[in-house]
Design a protein around this nucleic acid. Structure first.
Length: 291
RNA sequence: UUACGGGUGUCGAA
């Protein structure tokens, strides 16, 4: 029985819904996990009608996992309202289902609902749940609300700090962002990257280079994303030489293969600066199909 | 064996 269940979810993960339900129909016996796996197969692959049917008409019994999977089915197909309705009907709400609904709100930019929901549910929220709402505010440029929530959070980790940092950075609050950055208890690569990007956006190639040096001094090694920001900064500042040297250093010093976005950025930089032959050359030699 | 999972990236893509 267990192996059948495993087989089913393996199919489901790879989008083979029909194979999964085929397995299901051939099983001599099945249990709650089998039903849940079938439901999940539909849910994961955007088959809302089938999921509904299985959930409402076919399943002999439901546990809290079944409910959560159904919630996910609504969420995955963008039915925010229906997701909420289902959530309210859930006999047992777990941290997972709560997080799920929160992330739905967050992703849809329903920061109002997210906040209300957060206030209503008496349960303790995980740090991750709160950060999800925080980033929902950031998405909606609700800087004040984001700030309020951040200050009220009982504990904050680097992810939460970076989220609020990024909220400030993207809304042009450079000074506040800088202050936050300096106040952060820990700095990791993502936090540095946010700062790199902020300076890049504001056409401050000096700042970008300066930051990247400091980052190295702090023992943080850049990744492709960081390089994209650095290249972007060079691009804004029209600093072809610096861009070229970063690009080479990426491969030589850091053994990173240029990501497709790094190439895109570099090509953009060369193109804008009028080095068309070099740009074309790079397009032809890059390990990605040109589009 | 089944369910959610938080922070950063150029240009494009109405």
């Amino acid at each position: 029985l267990i192996s059948w269940n495993i087989l089913m979810s393996a199919f489901a993960k790879h989008g083979l819904v029909d194979e999964a339900s085929e397995v299901f129909s051939q099983m001599p016996v099945c249990d709650q996990v089998s039903w849940n796996s079938l439901l999940s197969a539909f849910a994961q692959n955007g088959r809302l009608p089938e999921a509904k049917q299985a959930f409402h008409e076919k399943m002999p019994a439901w546990d809290s996992i079944s409910w959560t999977i159904m919630l996910y089915a609504y969420a995955a197909s963008g039915n925010v309202e229906e997701a909420k309705v289902l959530f309210d009907k859930m006999p047992l709400k777990s941290l997972i289902s709560t997080n799920l609904l929160l992330s739905v709100y967050a992703q849809a930019g329903y920061d109002e609902q997210a906040r209300k929901f957060l206030d209503e549910s008496a349960a303790e929220h995980s740090l991750a749940s709160l950060t999800m709402v925080l980033s929902a505010y950031a998405l909606n440029s609700q800087l004040r609300d984001a700030q309020d929530l951040f200050e009220r959070m009982p504990e904050k980790d680097t992810v939460a700090w970076t989220s609020i940092l990024s909220a400030h950075a993207t809304s042009g609050q450079m000074h506040r962002a800088k202050r936050l950055f300096d106040a952060m208890p820990e700095l990791d690569l993502v936090a540095w990257t946010v700062m790199l990007e902020m300076h890049a956006q504001n056409s401050d190639p000096e700042g970008v280079l300066d930051l990247s040096r400091q980052m190295l001094i702090h023992g943080i090694l850049p990744d492709n994303t960081a390089f994209t920001c650095m290249l972007f900064g060079c691009s804004h500042g029209g600093d072809v030489a610096a861009g070229r040297s970063s690009f080479h250093s990426m491969a030589i010093d850091f053994h990173l293969e240029g990501g497709r976005r790094d190439y895109g950025c570099m090509i953009d930089l060369l193109g804008r600066a009028g080095h068309l032959e070099d740009a074309i050359d790079l397009v032809e030699t890059m390990p990605y199909p040109a589009r």
